[in-house]
Design a protein around this nucleic acid. Structure first.
Lengths: 205, 205
DNA sequence: GTCTATAGAACGATAGAC
DNA sequence: GTCTATCGTTCTATAGAC
């Protein structure tokens, strides 16, 4: 298994030990599910005693919240701007976004899967903060597709549904992709970007 | 919340009390996650004492296994045949399958989400039995798309990737759909079937 | 920052009566 | 088929030493 890129979110820059722990925790949550992972298992895997974890985090749910908020904020701050800042036509920019989105999701799959799967275990106010970023992402993509439809570059029966269809395609990849298969994640990203823009949203036919 | 259709799987036909309990359990697992749902919470929600549950099931993991196997078997037995038995062209049959697939997934969303999210909590041999049905589903859809490409009715850069893209679109719906929105699940099913067949897999452009 | 020790509650599961 | 009672374990979290 390749190394996962460390989260460069500035919230962690002065406490890299916390980030190291969260890398371990996110993988344990991913593999076992939040509710089945105990503080003792986390401590054993990190290589400390359980009590030590409470020096770095307020509790198990605080770990989950930092994982969910960290990866969601980072996604919105680093990936969404591609839609406006990439080179070329609207179709070109959407393809660039889809490609980077897929690669990001694979690199951060432990954080992302944990977020989407176990978010409901958090208190409502913390859920709402994360969901706010997710909704902003959905809305931004819908508006981008809507604008492309108005300009005649995209075609879809409904911009909201087309946005969700595209998101669904992308989100499903981590459920089946394996780096030991015939395609790299970069190759999958390229083919999906083509399917999404040249087929699903095509205005040609 | 509307009533969910009862699972007609014959495994439950002589013990409908078990099925009633699993309807409650699947919703608790869906809302809280398998690991965070205790036998006492299940018993309280069903309206019995915790010990009573062990008359119907071997344990909590047995409940999860019956949910996962039941809904997966039922899907394969009832939905996959639509691909061959529906009326019309290959494109027509795929549209019918997509529509029924989406409606089925919404009706059985507690069972299905629990299955896909918490399957890894089961012993490996039980996981494998469920995964066998899921792989059969993926393979059948891939072969159907492949055949349609050979006949010139479908077009895609890769039949396996196109199959996963379609599955991803469909599976994502339950993450955002709400019956209180502007579209019914049947309307979403129709629009997605059109997007999948006339756009994503279109051979026209 | 990490440790030992432990509190207090909740966990899955079982025995045996009715 | 459901109950009462309970066993032994594990859980999250804290207090306080180093």
């Amino acid at each position: 298994m390749e190394e996962l890129i460390h989260n460069p979110d500035s919230r962690f820059k002065e406490t890299s030990r916390s980030l190291e722990i969260l890398e371990v925790v996110s993988r344990l949550f991913y593999e076992n599910g939040y509710g089945l992972v105990g503080m003792r298992l986390i401590a054993d895997t990190v290589g400390v005693r359980a009590a030590t974890l409470y020096h770095h985090f307020n509790g198990k749910d605080d770990m989950l919240f930092q994982i969910a908020l960290g990866v969601t904020q980072t996604f919105v701050e680093r990936l969404l701007p591609i839609l406006e800042e990439a080179e070329g036509s609207r179709a070109d920019r959407l393809k660039a976004f889809v490609r980077q989105h897929i690669i990001f999701r694979w690199q951060r799959r432990y954080w992302i899967s944990t977020t989407l799967r176990d978010l409901r275990a958090l208190p409502a106010i913390q859920q709402a903060e994360v969901v706010g970023y997710l909704r902003h992402y959905q809305d931004t993509l819908r508006d981008f597709i809507q604008a492309g439809m108005a300009e005649g570059e995209f075609s879809a029966p409904d911009s909201t549904l087309a946005g969700f269809a595209l998101i669904g395609m992308i989100h499903g990849i981590n459920d089946w992709f394996s780096p030991s298969g015939t395609l790299t994640i970069e190759a999958v990203a390229d083919l999906y970007a083509d399917m999404a823009v040249d087929k699903l949203l095509s205005a040609v036919n």
